[in-house]
Design a protein around this nucleic acid. Structure first.
Lengths: 207, 207
DNA sequence: CTCAAATCAATACGTCTGTATGAGAATGAC
DNA sequence: GTCATTCTCATACAGACGTATTGATTTGAG
C-alpha cells in the first residue's frame, strides 16, 4: 500500500473520489441482493460507468469488496462519532445513544445493517474481510469499555460493575437485537425497550 | 407437497435417506466455504455421487438449499429437545441450558452456527429462506416465553418479569454472544458468564 | 505545444455454473 | 421373466462471470 497517498493535483486527483463513487454503487447492490449478487458489470451499470472503468479503479473484485467494507465501516464510525456529542452528556447517556445505533430504526440504518450482515457472513470464510471487520469491532468495544469506566468514575455506575464484561454483554445484546429487528422478529421499539431495561439493571448494581 | 410421503417398500424407499446424505455433504461445503462456495458439482463430489444423481434428488439448487436449511434446523431442534431434559428440572435450569446452546462451545456447535449464519445472511435477500428460518426462530422464542412463564408460576422468577420481553432480551443476548464467539471477538466462557449474569439479574427482580 | 500518464470504453477469452437430455443399469411388483 | 419405475451417470449447452487486452480520448505538467 505504498502508493496510496493520492495526489492533490493533476489527473490522479479524483482517484479516491471515483473509488468512493463506485463503492457506493457496490453497496447499493449488496443492500438489494446481497454479496452474492455482486458482479462487476452490474456495479459498473449502477455507478454509470463502463466495466473497464471499474477495472481501472480496482485491480480485482476482492479488492473492491475490501474497499467497500472499509467505506461502510467509515460511515458507521462517523455515526458513532456523532453520537458522542459534544461531551457534555453523562457517560450513560452517550453509551445509550451509541448502543441504540446498533438497532436499526429507519430505512437507512436497516440498509447499513443488511450490508454489514452480508459482510459478516462472508468474513467467516474470508480472512481478509474478517481482519478488516474485527478492527471495527474492537474499536467499538473499546469505546464501550471507556464509557463504562467513565460512568463508574462519575459514580453513575456501581463500582461492582466490570467494564469489560458489561461492554461484552451490551455489545452482544445490541447486536442481537439489531439482528432480530432486521429479520422482522422483533420491532425496533421493543428492542430499544429491552436495551434500556438492561442498562437500568446494569446501573442499578449487583443483582 | 402432495407426493412427498415416501414409500416404505420398493425403489423409492431410500429416497429421503439419500436426500439427507446429499444435504449433509452440502452442509459440509457451506461450513467450509460459505453459501457462495456451493455448486452442484462439488456437492456431488463431497457426497460421492455424480452430478446427475444430485439432480435426480433435487429438482434445483434452490430446492436443495431449502431442504438443507430444514435439515440443519431439525438438528438444532433436536439439540434443544435434549436440553429440555426429563422435565424434572427447574424452569430456570432448563432455560439456561437452552440458551447456552446458542453459544458455540465446541467445534460441532461452531460449525452449525457458521452454517446458520450463512443462511441468515442469504435469508435477507431470499424470502423463501427467510420464511423457513423465521419458523425456527418463532418456535424457539415460544419455548423461551413458556419457560419464563413457568419460572414465574413456580415463584422462581419475580411476578414483575414480563415473559415476552425477557424472552426477546435473552434470545437476542444469546444470539449476539454466539456471533461474537463465532467471530473470535469473545471467548465462550466469557459469553456464558455474561449470559449467567443477565439471568441472575432477570431473576433477582426489578432493578 | 508535447507527451506521458490517467481515464474510459469495447471486445475477447477461458472458466464455471445450473440445467437439460438421453441412455444404460438396477430394482422389485406382478 | 416382464416391465414400469427408479436410479445413476456422462455429456451437452447456454449464459454469466472475472479478467486481460487493446485502443481511443482526456488531462495537465514540463
Amino acid at each position: 500500500m505504498g502508493d496510496e497517498g493520492g495526489r492533490t493535483r493533476g489527473l490522479g486527483a479524483r482517484h479516491e473520489e471515483r473509488r468512493g463513487q463506485i463503492a457506493e454503487a457496490l453497496l447499493a447492490i449488496i443492500d438489494r441482493g446481497g454479496l452474492d449478487a455482486v458482479n462487476l458489470r452490474d456495479v459498473a451499470a449502477e455507478a454509470g460507468v463502463s466495466l473497464g472503468s471499474v477495472q481501472h479503479y480496482f485491480r480485482s473484485k476482492d479488492q473492491m469488496l475490501l474497499f467497500a467494507l472499509d467505506h461502510i465501516s467509515e460511515r458507521g464510525s462517523e455515526r458513532v462519532r456523532q453520537s458522542l456529542g459534544d461531551g457534555d452528556q453523562l457517560p450513560r447517556t452517550v453509551l445509550r445513544r451509541v448502543l441504540a445505533e446498533l438497532v436499526p430504526t429507519d430505512e437507512r440504518r436497516l440498509a447499513e445493517l443488511r450490508i454489514a450482515t452480508a459482510f459478516t457472513a462472508r468474513a467467516l470464510v474470508n480472512p481478509a474481510l474478517a481482519e478488516h471487520l474485527s478492527t471495527g469491532y474492537a474499536a467499538l468495544n473499546d469505546l464501550l469499555v471507556l464509557l463504562l469506566r467513565q460512568a463508574r468514575q462519575t459514580g453513575d455506575a456501581p463500582t461492582t460493575l466490570d467494564p469489560e464484561r458489561a461492554a461484552a454483554g451490551l455489545f452482544a445484546l445490541a447486536e442481537g437485537l439489531g439482528t432480530h429487528v432486521l429479520l422482522g422478529q422483533t420491532d425496533a421499539s421493543t428492542a430499544l425497550a429491552v436495551l434500556d431495561e438492561y442498562l437500568d439493571r446494569l446501573f442499578a448494581g449487583p443483582p
